[in-house]
Computed example of a mutant assay.
Amino acid sequence: MGVGILIGSCSSKNQTSTSKDKRPLVVFVTGDHEYSGESTLPIVAAELEKNYGMRTLVLKASPNQNSEENIPGLEALRDADLAVFFLRWRRLPKDQVAYIDEYLNSGKPVMGFRTSTHAFNYPKGHELEAWNAFGERAFGAPPGWGGAAKHSHYGHESTTDVSIIPEAAQHPILTGVDPNFHVASWLYRVLPDYPVKGTTWLLMGKSVNPNSQPAVDQPVAWTWQNPAGARVFMTTLGHPEDFQVEAFQRLVVNAIHWELGKPVPKNWKGKMDIQVPYRGIVN
């Protein structure tokens, strides 16, 4: 079974659920303007299907990543065993948001990348304005960009050195992950108030060539149990060049297994070929 990449408005029911296929279903929800999640995550999805015994479905903003008001197929979340979000400043209609709300209340695991901290951007007074704090509800992350949490980054000319937090070194998600690696993502500021109390920090980031001083080290990956009792994994990394780094690839695959309650792979199937360039925000 190939990766189900759903980009139209057709129903996903027949694509996602069969009575005989017991493999867990991972649904990726993408639409982020800038970081090409709709291109990197399908490669991860294909790897999960080929080598790790999972079914996958990739949902994309339509007609392209800049389309803020439509992600067809979100009803597939009803069949999902894990939902993975890579979103940025969406304004989805109420009926589509309802599927995400239902999933977040289900107690099933949730995973997020980078700009999912500010997945929604409804105008003040909109009936869905509370969804602008999606990052806090879903991941224990800052509730949107800027604001009282001062969620921001250290500049587009910077990169990040990542290291395993010693106290977390034995966490299953970090199995086989290099203790130190470098990524292209500019470091996101989340401290001092986030991640929320009760999170377990896994990786710390140090800004390289920051545009402001002092540059404070920040957690870049953590786990949590959200109010619905679900396992959560969040990383503020996700620049497309990050996906070229084997340590990051392994982190992602391990986290998906952990979230599903499956043992992390003892035998790493090898580095994925993910050659997606950074495009920035383009029309």
Score class of each variant (00 low, 15 high):
M1S: 10
I7E: 14
S12C: 05
T16F: 04
T18E: 15
D21T: 00
D21L: 02
P24Y: 08
V29H: 15
T30A: 13
E34C: 10
Y35A: 12
S36I: 14
S39A: 15
P42A: 13
G53M: 01
T56W: 02
L57Q: 05
L57T: 09
V58I: 03
P63Y: 10
Q65E: 08
E69I: 02
L74R: 00
A76D: 06
D81Q: 04
V84L: 15
P93C: 10
K94Q: 10
Q96M: 08
I100W: 09
S106A: 07
F113H: 06
H118Q: 06
F120A: 02
K124N: 03
G125A: 11
W131N: 07
W131G: 05
A133P: 09
G144W: 03
G147W: 11
K150I: 02
S163R: 13
S163Q: 12
I173D: 01
L174S: 09
G176V: 10
P179N: 11
V183P: 01
W186K: 08
L187A: 04
P192N: 06
V196W: 13
V196F: 11
G198H: 10
T200V: 08
W201Y: 13
L203S: 01
G205K: 07
G205T: 12
P214A: 11
A215R: 07
V220R: 02
G229V: 06
R231I: 04
R231W: 07
T235Y: 02
T235W: 01
T236W: 00
L237Q: 03
E241G: 02
D242P: 10
D242M: 12
Q244E: 13
V245N: 13
V245M: 12
F248N: 05
Q249G: 12
H257D: 01
W258T: 14
E259V: 00
G261W: 14
K262M: 14
P265N: 09
D273L: 08
I274M: 14
V276M: 11
Y278D: 05
N283I: 01
